[in-house]
Each structure stands twice: as C-alpha cells, then as structure tokens.
Design a protein around this nucleic acid. Structure first.
Length: 721
DNA sequence: GTTCTAGAAC
DNA sequence: GTTCTAGAAC
C-alpha cells in the first residue's frame, strides 16, 4: 500500500486538540477486526474504546443499539471508538456514521478486505470466538456475508477510508492508527488499492481512473494545500476492481468549467467559443492525465454546440476535452460524471449569491466555500483565477467528490455590471483568454501536485486493466474498445474518442439497412394489422399497438408506425413530426392505462437507434426490467444506454434540427452494466438483475427531466425519498 | 429479434 | 462442474 499516511500534527494552541474519532472496521468474520483493534489499542497513546457487538452484552452478543449507546457515551468522554462489527453494507454503517453529526467527529472506515478463503479458514479453525462463529458453519456464514458486501464510499459521510487487502496492509493501518496521539489527525480520502476477488468486467474496467482529493486536518480546518489522497469514484476510472457492483478507487482529475462571461457578462458567444477552444488546445497537453469539461445546464446550449464543433475541427482529443449538459453542482449525482475540480464564474468580490453559476456553487457548497475562499483572497481581478481547496465537510465534497473550486473572473460586457468594457472586444478577448489560461493553469497545478504525491501511479499499467491475478492485460487485446464517458444532452453518456464520429454526433447515417427475413414481422403487422388480430391490441389509422412478444419488462409495448418506407429513425424527418407525436401520445395513453392498474410502475418511451426489426416502432417499457426475456448485455444496454433515444428528445430534435441523433454505435451495446436507478455497475446480467429487483433509489436526475419518465405522482415522491 | 453452443470465466 | 458471454445462423 503506497500511501502517504503522514500524520498531521496540529500546531500548538490549535483548537480541537483531543478530538476523538470513530473508526468503523469493515470486514467479514475472520478478517481480523478484533486483532486490529487489539493491536491499535496496545500501542496507541490515544484513549480508545473498542465497541464489539459480539461481547457488548456483558461479554455476550448484544445489539447495534447497545453499540451506538456505548459509542455515544465514550465519545462524550473524549475517547475514540473502534467499531468492531462486520459493517459490510452501507445500511449497517449508516448509524455509526451519523455519530459524525451528533458528536462533531470524523468517521473513518478501515476495510479488512482480505481474501475470502483466508477469512473462511480462520473462522473455521478458530475456537472460543466471541461471537461463537467458528467451525463448519462459519464458512457458510462468511460466504453469505461476502456476497452482500458493499464497500464503503466517502459519500456515505466517511472522512477517510483505508483498504487493506493483505497482512502488510493491515499492519500498515495498525501502525497508522496506533501511532495517533490524542491530538493527531489523519489526512482524509481513500487509501489503499482495492483488488478484486471476483470476476473483473472489462467494460467496468474502462471506467476506472484516478483522482486525488485534498487533505484535511479536521472537519472544520481545511489545510491550504492539496495533497495526496485518492478519492472514491464510482463511474469514471481507468483502473480499479469491481465487486458486487460497487466500484472503487479514483477517476482522472477532471475540471468542469462553465462558459465564462457569456451569461450575465454578455460576452459574445461566437468569440468566446473561439477563445475556449484555442485555450483548451494550448493547455490540453499540459494537464497530465487530466480532463477538461465545458458544462452548461441548458439543453441546446449554443456555446456548447459552438465549442464542440470548433474542438472537432481542431481535432482536440475528445477524451481530454468534451462538453457536458448538466448542473455543475450535481455532475456526479445527476449525470454520473466525476469532476474533482469545478470552476466558478465568480464575481470580483468573491462573494456568494448574485445568481447563475456563482450562486449555485456557493449554495451547493454551503458556508465552507465562503470561509475557505475568504482565507485565500478578498477579491479577484478580471482575467485571473484562484484555487480554493474545498473542506470535506462541504456537501460538494462529500456528495459530488469536488475537492477544489477554482474561482475565475472573466471580462464584463454588461453595462449593468461592474467594470464594463463597453464592447471593447480587443481588451475583452485578451482578458477572457487570460481568464481561461489562469483557470487551466490552476487546474494543471492541482494535477501536478497530486501526481507528485499520488499513492497510485498508473505509469506501469497505463492503458491496461488489472486482472484478478494482478497481471496487466493490454486492453487492445480485448473486444471492448469504447471509452464510454459522459452525459451529453439527451443521454447519460456519450462516447468519447473516435466513437463520437459514428455515434452521438451522427445524424441519420445510412438510410438503408439490410433487414433479415426474421426482421420483417413488425412491418407485416403494420401493413396488415387485420391479419394479426391476435398480436395487436389497438389499430389506428397511423399506428398499431402490440405487446412485445419478448417483453423486457413487466410491461413492454410497441407502438408501430403504419407508414410504408418508415423503417427506422434514420428515415425520419420534419415531415414525420405528426406521426412521431401520434406515436408518443398513443404510447403515453397506454402507459397511463397501465399506471392505473399498477401504480408502482414507471414508464419510459423511446426508440432504438439501430433497431433489429424493420418498421419504426416506439418502445413503451416499464423500468422494472423484470422479465425472463432480458437475458444479455445487449438487451439491457438497448434500453439503458444512449442507444435508447427518448421519444421526447427525438421529437424535440426533429422540431429543431429536422433529424434525430442516432447513437447507433455498437460500443453502446458493450457498455458495462449499470443499474438504471443508482448507476452502480454489475459484472454480469444475473447480478444486475438481482440488484435491480431490490434497488429503490431514485432515478438519475437526467431521466427525471423533460418528462422522460412517466409515473404516478405519489410514486415520484416515493422515489425521491 | 431469438436460439444454439463453444469456450471462457468462475 | 457450472455459469455466463458472445458469435453464428435463422
């Protein structure tokens, strides 16, 4: 475990000396939790209390409530706590993490993620175990528990997570915690490389990249310099291991930035887009493995579209720079994009409020950002940027993984705002260029600092994936080549890299498609529905409705256009807007009918970018995906990747641009399997299916927008809970 | 679209 | 040995 675990010694007279901490041990029976506690307590000068559920009832097994009560009393007494119970899932840990609020302490997790075989053999062999888990039954219990293992993440509210995969890691963690005096604190973030003990899915591996987080002295004292820690990341990482759908380790350092000066400061968008692209081009190779992402909250954003096309012309590496539609304060939770650094279009006083991005970022970050900013500077000159490390107490840090905010001030062309340049674009362009240069330079500095001290270097295994046995496998040898990245306008993802040319950016493509003989069924039904009365459930002038004969969910209808020559979306143009609206309305009508019968259903309406069956058909499908016919990755991804084009978006695109976007690249079919609600990744279809039957988390924000999902209002509220 | 099946993965 | 994937055939 190559970690920078240097203990941070508080300065003399510093407040919060003797601040206790809570350390939650996470591990199966036999993983060595009790031994860990014993060793730490033996060597530490800090007062510790071991809270062991196996012995808390006068030496016998007790309850979680008892553990919490003892913890609470001990914390009040100024003692640090070692929670010695399995804590293998998020729910089990949650109550202990809540001690953070009630006692104003930091909560750490130490994950004893030792090989299952070792835990089992220890459990089977041991005698006199406090929890009476030993002998033959131990193996079954350990196995069952490990099946449900859900590794901790920072966004659960943890300040620091240490992963231990072997005895050396465990010893190192013991040394770290054992060496803590009463007043010492440890840096925050994730430590320790996680290795899998289950099958590694290549598609998932593509997402595994790294990112670093700032250190933290204590919950209310952010140290000024960024440091050396890796942050948990669930969606975008180059290298990490996957288990039970919980992907860990970091992603590439990524800066999300809004377009500077083009909103309230009324800077010309065309000129601004030119400057963005030119400055990006200049910096894109100076930011190491970092990425730059231009973010705008509005669909159909002109600045995004201008920048996108200009970047394409300049051939800027789309894996290093791309655009993203979404709320810059919710990129991780709302769009699955992890950006460890975000830029703020600040005002010159560096004050919260005022509207736009500045207000949104300060609102989302809470008072921590204002406090941290004020420590750095009181004002900002146009063209300059300043980095502010975000304390981990900020929700932007804990919920979105944002570790730094870079305030940047651009030129103002709005006479109603201070320092208006009165349309002097000679100066304006110069200042805007300086602003972006300064922003990117600040980001590059963060990347350099983190790279220098990162615990986990990719250099030896770059562009490779780590197999279970630890060997690095060149991904060029693998079939999965797409590097699916991030949300773009209508979808949760677009494909980065060269795939863009043939997928999300594609308009139409070849109109003719070779349809196999087996692909004609829908066409035949559409042309002669009266001959297929057993199949169709409604016949209208323009459409027929039928149940999909291989439904991929509890309810799965097809609304089929009856027009000859309208085989698929590529054949659709402005003149077909009425039929598309009719198809949509008929689909909505049927969805509402089903919703009356079963209020728990949620429906989504959309088209496959490259359907297998001839004749344009709209899928009306409930989002439970509870079906024996959903058997493979293609089935899942055809409804849960950008390949699936929401009807509302198709209609919008045709209205505005005359053609729909087709995300028909085969790469979408190879995407890793992610839950359509919580976006957790799963190694195979059976595991995914078992997960989606129990996952009740809300749907991602982008799906909840624009009426993409149809559901009953009460259910909508329930989902949001 | 599905079914079948070889062979990879576990 | 069993589970799972992915390509070929239809």
């Amino acid at each position: 475990m190559e970690v920078d675990d240097e203990i941070i010694k508080p300065k003399e007279n510093e407040e919060d000396i003797r601040k206790p901490i809570v350390v939650i041990l996470v591990g199966a029976p036999g993983s060595g939790k009790s031994t860990f506690c014993d060793h730490v307590m033996q060597v530490s000068t800090r007062p510790w209390v071991r809270v062991c559920q196996d012995t808390i009832g006068n030496g016998k097994a007790g309850t979680k409530a008892q553990c919490l009560a003892i913890s609470s009393i001990s914390l009040k007494d100024g003692k640090s706590i070692l929670i010695d119970r399995c804590n293998l899932d998020k729910e089990q840990r949650a109550d202990f993490i809540r001690l953070k609020e009630s006692h104003q302490v930091d909560v750490h997790a130490v994950v004893l993620d030792l090989p299952a075989k070792l835990c089992i053999s220890r459990s089977v062999k041991r005698t006199g175990h406090e929890g009476n888990l030993q002998g033959g039954k131990a193996a079954a219990v350990v196995n069952r528990m490990l099946q449900k293992k859900e590794l901790p993440k920072l966004n659960e509210g943890l300040t620091r997570i240490t992963f231990c995969q072997n005895e050396n890691d465990v010893q190192e963690a013991i040394n770290t915690y054992g060496a803590l005096s009463s007043s010492d604190v440890l840096p925050s973030g994730i430590f320790g490389e996680k290795k899998t003990d289950t099958k590694v899915q290549l598609g998932i591996m593509k997402f595994l990249k790294r990112v670093d987080a700032p250190s933290k002295v204590s919950s209310d004292k952010a140290i000024p310099e960024p440091s050396n820690v890796a942050i948990n990341e669930n969606h975008h990482a180059n290298e990490c291991q996957e288990k039970s759908g919980t992907c860990t380790l970091g992603g590439v350092p990524t800066l999300a930035f809004p377009s500077i000066s083009t909103a309230d400061f009324q800077f010309n968008i065309e000129k601004a887009s030119e400057i963005i692209v030119e400055t990006v081009e200049e910096f894109v190779n100076k930011i190491g493995n970092g990425r730059l992402v231009l973010v705008d909250i509005s669909h159909g954003s002109k600045i995004l579209s201008l920048v996108k096309s200009k970047a394409a012309i300049k051939n800027i590496d789309p894996t290093k720079f791309f655009t993203f539609v979404g709320d810059i304060t919710k990129l991780h939770s709302g769009g699955g994009l992890h950006c460890n650094v975000i830029a703020n279009a600040a005002n010159w006083r560096l004050k919260p409020g005022g509207g736009g991005v500045n207000a949104a970022i300060y609102d989302a970050a809470g008072p921590d950002l204002d406090i941290a900013t004020k420590k750095r500077a009181g004002s900002l000159t146009p063209g300059k940027a300043i980095t502010v490390p975000l304390p981990s107490t900020s929700p932007l840090f804990s919920e979105q993984g944002v570790t730094h905010v870079i305030h940047v001030l651009g030129p103002n062309m709005n006479p109603k705002r201070p320092n208006c340049l009165k349309d002097d674009y000679n100066i304006g362009c110069k200042v805007l260029r300086e602003a972006y240069s300064s922003l990117f330079e600040n980001f590059a500095s963060i990347v350099r600092t983190q790279k220098k001290s990162s615990y986990y270097e990719l250099s030896n295994c770059d562009q490779k994936v780590r197999r279970e046995d630890g060997a690095c496998v060149n991904e060029k040898n693998k079939k999965f080549k797409g590097s699916i990245e991030v949300s773009e306008s209508n979808n949760l993802y677009s494909v980065d890299g060269k795939q863009n040319a043939t997928s999300s950016g594609k308009k139409g493509g070849s109109l003719n498609k070779d349809w196999g003989s087996w692909a004609q069924a829908l066409h035949k039904i559409a042309m002669h529905p009266e001959k297929h009365k057993n199949d169709v459930i409604e016949i209208l002038d323009d459409v027929v409705v039928l149940n999909d004969i291989y439904p991929k969910a509890q309810k799965h209808l097809l609304v089929v256009a009856r027009a000859e020559g309208l085989d698929w979306l590529a054949n659709v143009s402005q003149e077909h807007l009425p039929i598309l609206k009719t198809m949509h309305d008929v689909g909505v009508k049927w969805a509402r009918t089903f919703l009356k019968e079963n209020q728990s259903l949620v429906f989504r309406l959309g088209y496959h970018s490259a359907p297998s069956m001839r004749q344009l058909h709209l899928h009306v499908i409930s989002q439970d995906f509870d079906s024996k016919h959903l058997k493979n990755k293609k089935h899942w991804n055809s409804f849960n990747s950008p390949f699936f084009r929401d009807s509302v978006n198709v209609i919008q695109e045709i209205s505005e641009e005359g053609k729909p976007t087709l995300n028909d690249d085969e790469k979408f079919m190879s995407m890793e399997l992610r839950c359509n609600r919580c976006r957790s990744a799963h190694p195979n279809i059976p595991r995914l299916k078992s997960h989606i039957t129990i996952c009740k988390l809300p749907f991602p924000a982008n799906l909840l927008q624009n009426d993409r999902l149809l559901q009953n209002a009460p259910d909508k509220d329930a989902n949001a809970c």
